[in-house]
Simulated assay, not measured.
Amino acid sequence: MNETLNFDFCDMTIYDHYVIVVIKEGIIVSTEHNNTLIKVTETYFSNKPFVYISHRIHSYSVNPEVYSKTAQIKNLIGLVVVSNNYQAKINAQIERMFFKKPFEIFSKMDDAFAWADEIIAAQ
């Protein structure tokens, strides 16, 4: 499966065991945005494990409250941030403290896919 969904705040590409999300420039990711993302994952990953991959191409902010709610998704087994931007990686390190599941930061999508495949296979 490979389906792309477009929203006013992000673009999502759905794969069998992960979702890649690209948040648009200048967005402040709120709990309302997060609720939309959660509904999509409930639709596409109902009861199977998946990894959320945040491809940070643009500059945006995340309300830390989002992470505690996202971590409650039972079948979400990990989160990956992919970026070449130093500041985005620093922000992700801070955000990692709010997320109580596996959370990795990579510069390359291939590394994110490999990590996602590894933790999916371990399920």
Rank of each mutant, 00 (worst) to 15 (best):
I20C: 02
I20F: 02
V22E: 13
I23P: 03
K24F: 11
E25K: 04
G26Y: 04
I27H: 00
I27K: 06
V29D: 08
V29T: 03
V29L: 10
S30A: 02
T31F: 08
E32V: 11
H33A: 04
H33D: 15
N35W: 01
T36W: 10
T36L: 11
L37I: 07
L37Y: 01
L37T: 14
I38K: 00
K39L: 11
V40L: 15
T41N: 13
E42T: 02
Y44A: 00
F45E: 00
S46N: 11
K48N: 02
P49R: 00
P49L: 12
F50W: 01
V51F: 00
V51R: 00
I53V: 09
S54G: 08
S54L: 06
H55S: 09
H55P: 09
I57C: 02
H58R: 14
S59L: 13
Y60M: 08
P64D: 10
P64V: 14
V66D: 04
S68R: 08
S68N: 07
K69Q: 06
K69H: 07
K69P: 03
K69Y: 10
T70P: 07
T70E: 12
A71Q: 12
A71D: 03
A71R: 07
Q72E: 11
I73M: 10
I73V: 14
N75I: 01
L76T: 01
G78Q: 05
G78M: 09
V82M: 12
S83F: 10
N84I: 06
N84T: 14
N85T: 15
Y86F: 15
Y86Q: 11
Q87R: 09
K89V: 13
K89P: 05
I90F: 09
I90H: 10
I90D: 11
N91I: 12
R96F: 14
M97S: 13
M97R: 15
M97G: 12
F98P: 04
F99E: 03
P102A: 04
F103N: 03
F103M: 13
F106I: 06
K108E: 14
M109N: 06
D110Y: 03
D110L: 05
D111E: 15
D111G: 05
D111M: 02
F113H: 15
A114W: 08
A114C: 07
W115R: 04
W115S: 00
A116C: 05
D117I: 00
D117S: 05
I119R: 02
A121H: 05
A121L: 02
